[in-house]
Design a protein around this nucleic acid. Structure first.
Lengths: 195, 195
DNA sequence: CCTCCAGTAGATCGATCGGTCTATGTGGAA
DNA sequence: TTCCACATAGACCGATCGATCTACTGGAGG
């Protein structure tokens, strides 16, 4: 509950960027949402908005990576992917399809925001590494695990974009079914055939 | 070479949105890039920028759908996906990873731009339909074909986002390999094992 | 006590945003 | 030729952008 200005700014940046994208998120919105003084931005992020966005993207990437790693170490990879997709589905519905992935938003923020793009790339690589480690733990060769992990990220992120556009969780459900089929091909028959 | 103001505006909108996103694309950039008078926007798009973006998204969706449908009717689905991924890879490299998918950009343009979001959803549905038709032609059940088609779109779009962020074509190559594995599971062994 | 400084509140800056306006040019139909 | 719809060039509007600035507040450390 301490939540200093810096932490509030990062949290608000993640929230607003998920909803509106980088360029559509103004500092005024950011300050109002985080109940923070304008000067506090430049106190903690000398580079201004660009710095804040980059740090928010890094933070969002770490949060998601922690979540995925947590679910992975207590279950099979497919169950972890399932849990992630279920959580995304619930989040989308709860917010009336208003929120997307902050890392994707940062990745597409344009050519002028190099720091944000690099932060997004770093987050993607982190997720891929975490997933690939789980796949190798299941016996997959290193190269196969890395490729598969990268594609799992692609499939989920793409489904999230489609789901927002269509205002439907169907793309996430399709991703669940198809990723299950793909993983079954690599890892053989394993659970996760619930409803 | 006729290329009236309306056509030039739509083409420029597609180009600039691919690079910068909707909100980061200003009317001034648009007019300069399309060499068009400011008033011409409101002549052809009474709703202003929002109308133009929506029409550009529709046009981009149709163009891509035509491309995909063309490649699909002269080859197996996997070969068509291969051709699409190869084209995306070359485009990314030729532009130094500056361009993405205009439909994705429109889909993430925010809550205020409803028309653009709907245009993006329409484009996604069109691609899914086109792909699903090809899969049913190969003998897949309707429901399976639709689900698989939706996921193929997700996987490709997600790979494109990752590729831009990382400035690497690796995600597209991963998508190729994994989509091939997935389709092989449904359709059995079919060509496309070149390098 | 006083000092110091992160935090707050808000005025203000130049630049740019999307949109509207006038003036002028142009090419085809009546 | 006359006419008119369209295209162009560019000034202009209020609003908002990111960023800088001053003035004030409150609590920790000497």
């Amino acid at each position: 509950m301490t939540a200093g200005p810096r932490e509030r700014l990062v949290d608000s940046a993640i929230t607003l960027i998920r909803e509106r994208g980088v360029h559509a998120t103004g500092l005024t919105d950011l300050l109002e949402h985080s109940r923070t003084a304008r000067a506090s931005i430049y106190q903690h992020f000398p580079g201004g908005k660009a710095d804040l966005i980059a740090e928010a993207t890094h933070a969002a990437g770490r949060q998601m990576d922690t979540f995925v790693a947590g679910v992975l170490e207590s279950g099979a990879p497919l169950d972890a992917i399932d849990a992630l997709l279920r959580w995304l589905r619930r989040t989308l519905r709860d917010t009336d399809f208003a929120v997307g992935c902050p890392v994707v938003a940062a990745a597409l923020s344009g050519a002028d925001t190099t720091a944000a793009r690099e932060a997004a790339a770093s987050a993607f690589r982190g997720w891929q590494r975490t997933l690939a480690a789980a796949f190798t733990r299941e016996g997959l060769p290193e190269a196969t695990a890395v490729s598969l992990a990268g594609f799992v990220v692609s499939g989920i992120e793409g489904a999230l974009v489609q789901a927002r556009a269509m205002r439907s969780v169907q793309p996430l459900d399709d991703a669940r079914v198809q990723l299950a089929a793909l993983l079954r091909g690599y890892l053989g028959e394993t659970g996760s055939d619930d409803q």
